[in-house]
Design a protein around this nucleic acid. Structure first.
Length: 492
DNA sequence: TTTAGGG
DNA sequence: CCCTAAA
């Protein structure tokens, strides 16, 4: 029933533009207006109706809107309050305002959830087309200032990537409104509303919901995306955007929302199932997690980046490195190095191909010491235990990595000893020479826990006393260790 | 699945 | 760091 009436309801405000929906509507419209409000005030229970009222058809919007892009800030919905409709209608018509909506729709379209919007678009088309924003609002942009404010003002998302947070509130203050009647402020709140329609997964639609508290608020909800919380001061926004007379919104810099691929990366890293829902619930925890170690093997330490670029590798490899780095930058910050999704996808393919080999992650001295301690504690060969107990926080260090590192440590350690015997002429060839204390510890452990193959060049201690290792190896099973040693010898 | 060894 | 074989 409500779904039927919505279209009518929506047209009323459209006809009554430049009037306050709350107060200025004609008597005949008032009842319906109140009903609209009622419906809108309870988005959760009535969200279907609300959607039908305020959803935008992408096609329709595109006809009238020219905004190429929309900042990520509005990707997740928006709401205009405190003079919303009034201020919007009170100002001269300006299609620029609609560009904001267009941006929203564009982004939503990327989420592939716009299908239902077409069905409902006709209902609100008139309203939307007549919908006018105040000039000030036309200058709204989510450029770098928005991004910065987003991060700064988001109290709980200081560590979130790109300022993503669950609070999902965008507030745009318009303090310089010309018609001081109503438009003192324009608040854009992003609300995260979970909707369903016809019992199936709800298509993502834009919901504009006037609320009573602050005049009229426009709320756009998005199911699929995490929401953004930030406050944009009008001044900052103005300075970051150029508005031409023709109504073209030029942005000096633009922020991109997390791309699909970005989201997919999260989903892949996340152990939980149900991508979509998890994405919604997923908050800055996971987003903040990504840049660090959740990328596990995919992650390449930033300190290596310049090195990779500088390396005189083949052009292909350089390109791969750059693209890979770029993709990772996309994760770290929202500034994407790619102009288009396709470009990013291409880079992704290269990256995956490049990922065949684990990106080298330099071992820090602390890690080496930790490894040595673990070996001293658990014995050689118990790499899994060492990994679990000492490198639990280092997702990028696998037991095999530990073993390889230990092997290399033994090699370098004895090579070092060898070089020192020869006169230390090649000391400079060691990029990062281990501290003597560590080297000594490695040698001690090498004698205590002989590592078959690695010790072969140092033939002195291989067969010296395999039994001596057992007493010192507290937790390592003697038989096991012995077996490995024998096996290693067998292979030789 | 973990470990050892080779590449 | 990757791959494979062995246990």
């Amino acid at each position: 029933m409500r779904t039927e009436r919505k279209p009518h309801l929506i047209k009323k405000p459209a006809d009554a533009k430049r009037q306050s929906v709350d107060e200025s509507l004609g008597p005949g419209l008032k009842d319906e207006a109140t009903e609209v409000e009622h419906l809108l005030v309870e988005p959760k229970s009535e969200h279907v109706s609300v959607d039908r009222v305020f959803c935008f058809g992408k096609e329709n919007i595109e006809k009238h809107l020219k905004m190429e892009d929309f900042s990520c800030a509005f990707d997740y919905g928006w709401k205009i309050g405190s003079g919303g409709l009034d201020s919007i209608h009170g100002q001269g018509g300006d299609d620029l305002k609609l560009e904001v909506l267009d941006g929203l729709l564009d982004e939503v379209d990327e989420v592939d959830d716009i299908q239902a919007a077409h069905d409902l678009s006709s209902a609100c088309e008139d309203f939307l087309l007549d919908f006018e924003f105040p000039e000030k609002f036309s200058e709204l942009d989510c450029g770098p200032y928005v991004g910065s404010n987003l991060r700064n003002s988001s109290s709980e998302s200081s560590n979130s990537v790109g300022g993503m947070s669950e609070s999902s509130i965008v507030t745009v203050q318009e303090s310089n409104s010309k018609n001081g009647v109503l438009g003192k402020m324009v608040n854009c709140d992003i609300h995260h509303t979970i909707r369903s329609e016809c019992g199936c997964q709800a298509p993502v639609m834009e919901t504009i919901r006037p609320s009573k508290e602050h005049g009229q608020d426009f709320v756009k909800s998005d199911d699929e995306k995490p929401l953004v919380s930030f406050i944009v001061s009008n001044k900052k926004v103005k300075s970051s955007v150029k508005v031409t007379k023709g109504g073209t919104l030029l942005r000096q810099k633009r922020l991109r929302k997390p791309t699909k691929r970005y989201i997919e990366e999260f989903s892949r890293n996340s152990t939980t199932s149900g991508k979509n829902k998890c994405l919604k619930v997923r908050s800055q925890e996971e987003f903040s997690q990504v840049p660090s170690e959740s990328q596990s093997r995919r992650g390449r330490p930033k300190k290596i980046m310049p090195k990779m670029v500088e390396l005189p590798l083949s052009a292909l490899f350089s390109f791969l490195s750059l693209t890979s780095v770029a993709c990772e930058f996309e994760s770290d910050c929202e500034l994407s190095a790619f102009e288009s999704e396709g470009e990013c996808k291409r880079a992704k393919r290269f990256k995956t191909a490049c990922d065949r080999r684990k990106h080298q992650r330099m071992w820090t001295l602390a890690e080496v010491i930790k490894l040595v301690d673990g070996i001293a504690q658990y014995g050689v060969g118990r790499w899994t235990d060492i990994k679990k107990l000492l490198f639990a926080s280092s997702a990028y260090r696998t037991p095999v990595d530990l073993r390889d590192k230990w092997r290399n440590l033994l090699r370098s350690s004895f090579a070092h000893k060898h070089n020192r015997k020869e006169g230390e002429t090649n000391v400079k060839h060691y990029v990062r020479p281990l501290p003597k204390t560590v080297v000594c510890r490695i040698r001690e452990l090498a004698t205590i826990h002989p590592y078959p193959k690695a010790r072969s060049p140092n033939h002195s201690s291989i067969n010296s006393d395999p039994s001596s290792k057992q007493p010192t190896t507290t937790k390592a099973a003697p038989i096991n260790t012995h077996g490995r040693s024998l096996r290693g010898k067998k292979c030789n």
